[in-house]
Design a protein around this nucleic acid. Structure first.
Lengths: 169, 169
DNA sequence: TAAAATACGTCAGCTATGTTGACATATTTT
DNA sequence: AAAATATGTCAACATAGCTGACGTATTTTA
């Protein structure tokens, strides 16, 4: 039953050309994603904890910061969680004045979301930390690697959300 | 999207380094990671749900599958959760015979973890799905992009765990 | 214009997965 | 013999998902 694989899994670079994909290469990708995502969220998580917030609050703050005036249903579509789940964190953020919502006068059913100054400050703090991590990795890797990084990640994302990311720029 | 503020331009070296990192590029990276990780875990999550398992079970099954004979503390070190958290999922997996543990005869305090046939079957199913997603993205992106993808992700991972991924050319 | 659909919110309860802290047991190291 | 290590367990708690039911305001549609 035990396959006698290497316990520490030394992995090698995918070799060139006709892109022959070994199981090992694919496993490496999965582990890279696991470790990178774990470390990517680590520092924000500890900052948020000081505010009594969690990663769910971060997501809301991040996306509202990136898309000021987005509606609640826009946000639900991005996060892919239920409105009941969102409600819990959003209510907190509204109550503690990190986010404010204004009725859309063009469709008064809709509530448009904005960061308050407080929310903006927290967003800046969180994004700054993550930016530094990414920026360092980007600089060390170089422009070509960055392009490849983006290309592969886009390929992992479903067709619909992939359209959020244009290739040019 | 608002570009009225510019919280984090990496202050370091406006070098001959050709990599101009704009706030927008860094935000794109964060969003790519968010969406990719969300979609990467989506299909396994629904398979696991049919077994009454969650993502935590997947991690245990995955890493034990990749490192047969690893100890409980090895696993704790990778997952970075408390032993109490691990205990809950590990106990379930032992009880339902997806994992078995054998006492290490060289150090009888240690319990070495292995997948049972059942565990192996589930691991195969889950890994197969994720492999297909990654393989498609890899093939569409090409070998150079794949290399860049790995390089950047390695750069995001902390120094210690980064050593798991050696580029032995 | 009445009915249906949409956008949003809320109450209640459940599950999964993380946390601390305390304590126990077996085994190995000092 | 004492200390450190590896593992396990009990209890209590928090975060963040989920389903289902229901309510209200507003817009769209038949």
């Amino acid at each position: 039953m035990s396959e006698e694989f290497d316990p520490v899994m030394p992995m090698s670079k995918p070799r060139a050309n006709p892109l022959f994909l070994r199981d090992e290469d694919l496993r490496q990708a999965m582990e890279l994603l696991f470790f990178a995502y774990r470390d990517f969220t680590d520092e924000p998580d500890s900052i948020l904890a000081q505010y009594g917030f969690g990663r769910a609050h971060h997501r809301v703050i991040y996306f509202v910061g990136a898309n000021p005036g987005m509606s609640v249903s826009d946000l639900l579509g991005i996060l892919r969680i239920t409105k009941q789940s969102l409600s819990r964190v959003l209510s907190q953020l509204l109550k503690e004045e990190f986010i404010e919502q204004l009725t859309d006068e063009a469709d008064r059913r809709r509530r448009l979301l904005y960061l308050t100054q407080r929310g903006q400050d927290l967003e800046n703090l969180l994004t700054e930390r993550q930016s530094k991590l990414i920026a360092r990795a980007y600089r060390e890797a170089g422009a070509d690697a960055v392009a490849g990084f983006c290309t592969v990640l886009r390929g992992i994302i479903n067709d619909t959300d992939r359209r959020r990311f244009t290739i040019d720029e």
